[in-house]
């Protein structure tokens, strides 16, 4: 096994109103529209150099169509394919171009029913900045001007099984977990990583195949405030925030796209390494774990139950 999965590459979501979603991701989030083919639009953020990181597809329902993780090498892809099969996953190979601008790769369902793709190459188009003597940010960013996507959080009816499968079959590392009490070792929610952030993917209990949110990175807390201004100005439906997470130590606003898919703007946290001791939260401290400033404890129920 080489270095395995590198990062979350793309989130492919469904919308019930493609034009409204296009305005949201382009004009509110400030993403660059890269292509539009029939029922789907491809976007990338300004600090990303691969062709796209978000695909929005017209459908009669909201939710996650699939997620793509980028892998270091084709040897890694072969090794991961074997591991997925060893752990009971039914793998389909896809060829170059089957996903627009994406090279060959593998597709499979994880135990929660979510479709995941692994690939090695996507056409590189470069950042919105030169790679020689660049300024810190490009001119003319619209709205929030998010530099990149960061992670996604999915729900699973058997979260422990899904968490353990992702760690065994795909070599995800665990940054943080939720357990029933301090004597339990059984994770019922977890924040997993392959990059150096506290999570590239997280899993909480909920219906199979559903997405709780996917997140955009912002550089700091002041950018979170600015994003809140942009959301209110544009009548974007805000869910919770600005807030602080106990889990991951991130800072956040949650909000919804025009199909009701939850997005997050996220900053902070810490650098995660594979050898870090796992951080554990007990269920009785979960209100602080989810929203550290929420002393009124009024948000958790609706926040966790609403998914697409």
């Amino acid at each position: 096994m080489g270095e395995g999965i590198m990062r979350l590459g793309y989130v492919h979501i469904r919308t019930t109103d493609l034009e409204a979603s296009r305005r949201h991701y382009r004009d509110v989030m400030g993403m660059q529209e890269m292509a539009c083919h029939n029922d789907r639009v491809y976007f990338k953020c300004w600090d990303e150099y691969d062709h796209h990181s978000v695909v929005v597809q017209q459908s009669d329902r909201a939710g996650l169509e699939k997620m793509g993780f980028k892998v270091h090498t084709y040897d890694d892809l072969d090794a991961l394919e074997k591991q997925v099969m060893q752990h009971g996953g039914a793998v389909t190979r896809f060829s170059e171009g089957e996903n627009y601008k994406v090279g060959q790769g593998i597709r499979f369902e994880i135990p929660s029913g979510h479709v995941m793709e692994l690939y090695v190459e996507m056409e590189q188009v470069g950042k919105a900045l030169p790679s020689l003597n660049p300024p810190p940010y490009p001119e003319g960013l619209k709205g929030v001007g998010a530099p990149r996507i960061d992670h996604l959080l999915i729900t699973s009816e058997k979260p422990t099984e899904t968490i353990e499968w992702l760690m065994k079959a795909l070599n995800f590392y665990m940054a943080e977990r939720v357990v029933e009490n301090e004597h339990s070792d059984k994770p019922i929610a977890a924040w997993l990583f392959r990059s150096n952030t506290p999570h590239d993917i997280a899993i909480i209990p909920g219906p199979d195949k559903k997405i709780h949110h996917f997140a955009f990175w912002l550089d700091d807390w002041f950018e979170i405030r600015k994003a809140g201004d942009v959301f209110s100005k544009n009548d974007v439906s805000i869910d919770v925030g600005p807030e602080r997470h106990g889990i991951t130590r991130g800072q956040t606003i949650y909000y919804f796209d025009p199909a009701g898919n939850r997005n997050e703007v996220f900053t902070g946290g810490y650098i995660a390494y594979p050898d870090m001791p796992v951080v554990t939260w007990t269920v009785d401290q979960l209100d602080r774990g989810i929203f550290y400033f929420n002393h009124r404890k009024e948000w958790i129920e609706g926040f966790t139950s609403n998914v697409t």
Binding site: D60, A259, G260, N306
Partner: peptide, 30 residues
């Protein structure tokens, strides 16, 4: 109220007992 207000999550689902409403078609059949 907690919910998306965008036709995706179903948190605002109601049962109509009397009367007539018109619903826009851009909601999730999930």
């Amino acid at each position: 109220f907690m919910g998306c207000r965008e036709g995706g999550c179903g948190a605002c689902k109601l049962e109509l007992l009397e009367g007539v409403v018109a619903m826009r078609p851009n909601y999730s059949k999930d």
